[in-house]
Design a protein around this nucleic acid. Structure first.
Lengths: 181, 181
DNA sequence: CCTAACATGTAATCGGTTACATGATTCT
DNA sequence: AGAATCATGTAACCGATTACATGTTAGG
């Protein structure tokens, strides 16, 4: 079973969803750590259904087109729980930013500075986004959600995102300053 | 042209290399930010040759099997320089660690703690590796290499790697402490 | 009427991994 | 003789993206 399968099961553990719902979530919130398009999600849901990890119910709608609502099965739940803490394979890293940085000595300094200033602005914007989401979660739960709550998992990842953007921003600032010197 | 092409051109800007040399580098040092196996590298070198971005010379050896040595051409150099500062597309992120963290509220606390302690140890080991490489570079150049030197690019990426592992480690420690509480 | 959002699929292609395949040379 | 390293390739498969394809409902 692929990582996408577990990504979907993880979402279905939080409640019923259609393929369309999942596609939206993978485009927005989840995009911090996982990505998928509808063209990958629909076939994957079929596979999960064939494996008995999810079940589907067709829902007639009058105000919207009909839809297929997916739910996780006990078997799916079991597979998900087993996967979460299983040994984590070390994934190959691929960062285009650092691939470019690896050749940064070849380009004119002023242009390099402009490039990283642009990246810095992007990173700061992302960090602010995470900070706002974190603040909203903290407000809703009057602090850190308890670790049995699904909001805790969300909180932990948002916190990571925020700290990570801070680190990237600091490195960018160091690089800009060093190129200027 | 693919990112791998530019990754290869970037290495060839640092000197002549065989496909075998490149495969070693992508497995070891470059693995911090890019990855490739020989099965991908050999065909890619063919493509680059057909595009006139690299040239090849066959070298007869007596103490080793014969080999094909690749060099970047002026056209390849031009393509590389143009790519380095071109607009950076935002790449889809996929982190299995954070995909799992997204469902961490589902598993027993003590097992989760053990899992992240293990990750923490990995991360610390990686950070120490980067720190040692950084220290060696600093010693060799009596400080930070100048920004026109290829060692500067290497230095910048090593510094990023070190700071990044520090950030990941700090987050892991926070997560472990919070799960314990 | 037209556009946007809802909703679900398939096909072609691409980048990357795993496995298959071969052979030279050195060192133990 | 056998293992390790050097050296170069191909083929099958898989995960993911882009493009193709279709149809509904709501709202301006």
């Amino acid at each position: 079973m692929s990582k996408l399968s577990f990504a979907i099961l993880g979402q279905l553990m939080r409640g019923s969803r259609t393929g369309y719902d999942l596609a939206q979530e993978f485009r927005d919130g989840l995009s911090q750590f996982w990505h998928a398009k509808h063209s990958q999600i629909y076939p994957e849901l079929q596979k999960l259904k064939d494996l008995g990890q999810v079940k589907v119910s067709e829902v007639r709608q009058s105000s919207r087109p009909d839809k297929k609502v997916y739910n996780i099965t006990p078997a799916g739940e079991c597979a998900l729980l087993e996967w979460i803490l299983s040994p984590l394979p070390d994934a190959p890293v691929r960062s285009e930013l650092h691939l470019r940085t690896h050749s940064i000595h070849l380009v004119p300094k002023d242009q390099a500075i402009a490039f990283y200033k642009n990246e810095l602005a992007r990173t700061e914007a992302e960090r602010e986004g995470f900070e706002m989401q974190l603040a909203r979660l903290e407000a809703a739960f009057s602090g850190i959600p308890s670790s049995e709550n699904e909001a805790f998992s969300t909180y932990a990842n948002l916190k990571f995102g925020m700290e990570n953007r801070r680190q990237v921003a600091e490195w960018s600032r160091w690089l800009i300053a060093t190129l200027k010197a």
